[in-house]
Design a protein around this nucleic acid. Structure first.
Lengths: 176, 176
DNA sequence: GACATCACTTGCAAAATGATAGTAACTGCC
DNA sequence: GGCAGTTACTATCATTTTGCAAGTGATGTC
């Protein structure tokens, strides 16, 4: 979350991190997904210092993930609620949770995803919306688009070429 | 990426962030997914100062996402490659990319996901591995598991109760 | 009128970041 | 044999960020 000027950085991952890449931001969003919205709730829930919390909340509001809105007058008090952009961040959070559960839930699960229609525990996987196929290393790769920088295009094309070569070698292997 | 002692923090999201939550870490992983593996490649690709790069690479190795291994002797030179844990981080990256593309690709796409079997562009969605249903705000929620802290359990249960009440109210509305 | 609530701000020490420069172990070239 | 080039770093240090502790202001409650 720093000097990165966007012209030099068309990468969607870098731009996303520019919004949520600071230490507390994602934890604040996590709480927002639980329905936490008030300053003191965040403060207690996270154990964060109030000045840090104020800085991060302002940052997330500026970034467009949270909206600061008054919930009472006399005295005016504000709460912080997710915008559409913020709500759309949920898949990232769930992917992070899935990964965390897989590797760091050494004393058992602390939380998991449930389908509330029938109460079953859900294993979240990324799939192709169109075909329904799971995304895999074997079948899927990133490709440069029209807005890619030169550097990015080169990197991605190198990767694509390398993968093609590997596949060709594997096919040879199989035939032999 | 700091003082957080794990006993106080069973949340899988917090633990995940403890490993990859620092500013450069995820960008380094992004490059690793493109096949970048050498110190100077990362340095050039990211435009990062070498001391920072060394710190982050060491961090990611310690965290278990990268493996440092010699690729030549005379002189010994090391490269950094993804471990299984690192490779499993890919869905998080792709979710981040999807979100970034949706909101910040103002000059057009810089990169996108392709199914290389037929070359079609993929829209990645999180789904239930078992049923294939997409994960939605309406149908899915986080539930506390056996390893949840008291605070976390309370927060999640509050959220679940709030959602149930909202659903009940919505059902009333519909009936009327 | 003392106390509590809530959303913050201020001041400051400690820690992290990052620009610049340097090192170490080689290889290849003339 | 010497000198540039490659690669993977480390060292130094100014700047920036973090985060603890304390304070503030508007209001309502006992």
């Amino acid at each position: 979350m720093k000097k990165t000027n966007l012209d030099e950085m068309p990468c969607p991952i870098a731009r996303a991190l520019d919004r949520v890449g600071e230490w507390w931001s994602i934890l604040i969003l996590r709480d927002a997904f639980y329905g936490v919205s008030r300053f003191d709730e965040f403060e207690k829930s996270l154990g964060i210092a109030p000045n840090m919390l104020a800085r991060r909340l302002n940052g997330l509001v500026e970034a467009g993930l949270l909206e600061r809105r008054p919930y009472q007058t006399k005295p005016v008090r504000y709460e912080y609620v997710l915008t559409d952009m913020g709500r759309d961040f949920r898949p990232v959070m769930l992917a992070l949770m899935t990964w965390g559960n897989k590797y760091f839930a050494t004393e058992g699960l602390a939380m998991f995803l449930v389908d509330e229609r029938d109460g079953h525990m859900v294993d979240a996987v990324l799939t192709d919306r169109h075909t329904g196929d799971p995304i895999t290393r074997e079948n899927h790769a990133m490709y440069p688009g029209p807005a890619a920088s030169e550097r990015m295009r080169t990197r991605l094309e190198n990767n694509i070429a390398r993968r093609a070569a590997e596949r060709a070698a594997a096919a040879m292997e199989k035939r032999a």
